[in-house]
């Protein structure tokens, strides 16, 4: 039981940190670039450690993100739960890929998330194609291998099997 609580605290702390990194204001030079750390975190846990993160948890984090970013309530929640489900469903295939292929998969998942976001915007009447968003996704995918390594190290350290 103690083990479970320990692991839960680990996951939610990591997710809280990624949430804060997502909404943290960047210097003006990076204007418009917004890296989806939360999505990266959700993908990581859905692929690598299923017992710690499920669809519902991803949804809850997305809801928190919506509140923080002041957007439509449920938009990020929907995107993150879909991303979580997809990466969970194909985890056995993805897990054995070499790093660069996982990177491509991440790019695909994040773009799919962005596509959903565009659909929702279309429904709510503000279709807007922001170039920086797609640029941010590419940057996020490039960051992915480092992100994965860091989280794996942390996980080996703190998560009890």
């Amino acid at each position: 039981m103690n083990k479970k609580i320990n692991n839960l605290i680990f996951v939610w702390l990591i997710m809280l940190v990624t949430t804060m990194m997502t909404i943290m204001p960047l210097p003006h030079f990076f204007y418009g670039i917004r890296i989806e750390w939360v999505a990266l975190g959700v993908i990581f846990f859905s692929i690598m450690n299923v017992s710690l993160m499920g669809v519902i948890a991803a949804w809850a984090i997305g809801l928190l993100l919506d509140l923080l970013q002041g957007g439509l309530l449920g938009e990020n929640a929907l995107i993150l739960s879909v991303i979580s489900y997809l990466s969970y469903r194909f985890r056995f295939q993805i897990r054995v890929y070499p790093d660069w292929q996982i990177m491509v998969v991440t790019l695909f998942l994040l773009s799919f998330g962005n596509l959903i976001s565009l659909w929702i915007r279309g429904f709510s009447g503000r279709v807007l194609f922001v170039t920086e968003e797609w640029l941010s996704i590419v940057i996020a995918a490039l960051i992915w291998p480092i992100f994965m390594r860091i989280l794996q190290t942390l996980q080996n350290y703190f998560v009890e099997e």
Partner: peptide, 13 residues
Amino acid sequence: RLIFVIILSCVLM
């Protein structure tokens, strides 16, 4: 769960 969550999100939005 995914289906449930998608419906819930749509209602919220």
